[in-house]
Design a protein around this nucleic acid. Structure first.
Lengths: 212, 212
DNA sequence: GCCAACCATTATGGACGCATGATCCTTTTT
DNA sequence: AAAAAGGATCATGCGTCCATAATGGTTGGC
């Protein structure tokens, strides 16, 4: 057995520590050099980890990206869920809180926004699309959990495509925020996104009830 | 002087022919292997052109992509302009014709859709963003050329961000059409996009006049 | 304090792509 | 038909990255 203490850490702890350092390094390098420019060697030197040890943590660059992306999504979902729970229990309230929560979360750290909305696409990796699907369904939930069972999706138009388009709109706004040399205010991004969704999903017009 | 006839073509014609073959090869390879996977050697072998001669046509891979992309945009603008001109002179009519024209054009050849909406982003090349700006402004024009000078952009929301978001929405729909293993009908894509824009730009509600 | 585990640093071999140079076949001119 | 231009095929030098192996310094157990 090769489970021995070292620098006060067990074998598993050391392994986990290296893994974590690699993830942290990836977090930074993806945002600065982009995913294609982030070589394994750079990752290792940034994380101060042996080139050899990388392969004991991940099978290759793609798996690392996958893990980083999933972590980002997990954190984002948590943050958004919290924002939504604290919001007033109206469709509009939940919607606005969800968007503001997500945009706020993602713009809080420029690296996050870049990884989640730019680098993921550049990879073209297959398993990443699965993660994307998860985000989609989470987004669906926010809409489908409208309070009194009103279906906010209009008829005659594929609701899946509509949600897809809304995600694309939001994504484009965030990408612009990331790439523009003179980025818009976060509030403006949120405002545009909220305005968009408010107009697209007609349930919002049924919602002045709570206000009066 | 080195301007001599060869295979019935002048020196300039031969040069132009090689250029064209490279562009055609790029058109195909970008869509199958993606831009990053499209090496110069592959391009040359596909175009049946000497590796050496490539650099007499383009300075490198990026310039070729640039040229291909600009050609795509040019053709798209032409096609959309024609569709819009033939449409009824109402805001809604122009809008619908523009969207249907663009989606129809871009989905007419799968390679086009992929190049214009996927590979361009993957390149991360700087001059490409300029071309993208041109597309943006063209899109603006369609909206700003509303017949009786009504400003369809709502107040309180940055119209630039709103247009950006709409482009993002449309782009996402097209990307989905390209990547999905079970792609939606083109009509459904057009329908979703039209529905979206109709709801977002309130000028559309001022437009039942022509119908009666 | 000595040995052994541990691990970052530093090579090594292989593959790939870019850019350029050399070779050889084809086409045109005379 | 011979000479010369044109261009594709093949070959080279260079750099980068991946993946693995050898090196050497550090830490923990005894």
């Amino acid at each position: 057995m090769s489970g021995r203490a070292y620098r006060g850490l067990s074998a598993d702890e050391r392994q986990a520590d290296r893994r974590e350092r690699l993830i942290s390094a990836a977090y930074t390098l993806y945002a600065s050099l982009g995913f294609p420019g982030t070589t394994i060697e750079r990752l290792c030197s940034e994380a101060r980890i042996s080139n050899r040890a990388f392969y004991e943590c991940f099978s290759g660059r793609e798996e690392l990206l996958q893990v980083v992306h999933e972590r980002c999504i997990e954190e984002a979902l948590g943050s958004v869920a919290k924002s939504v729970q604290e919001a007033p229990d109206t469709f509009l309230g939940r919607l606005e809180a969800g968007i503001a929560g997500y945009v706020g979360f993602v713009t809080q750290d420029r690296r996050r926004a870049r990884i989640m909305h730019l680098e993921v696409r550049r990879a073209g990796d297959q398993p990443l699309l699965a993660s994307r699907e998860r985000t989609m369904s989470a987004f669906y939930k926010v809409i489908e959990d409208a309070p009194e069972g009103t279906a906010p999706v209009p008829s005659g138009v594929d609701p899946h495509l509509l949600s897809l388009a809304m995600l694309g709109a939001l994504q484009e706004l965030i990408v612009d925020w990331v790439l523009a040399e003179d980025p818009p205010e976060v509030e403006a991004v949120v405002g545009a996104a909220v305005h968009l969704l408010r107009r697209v999903f007609p349930a919002s017009v049924l919602q002045p009830s709570e206000h009066a």
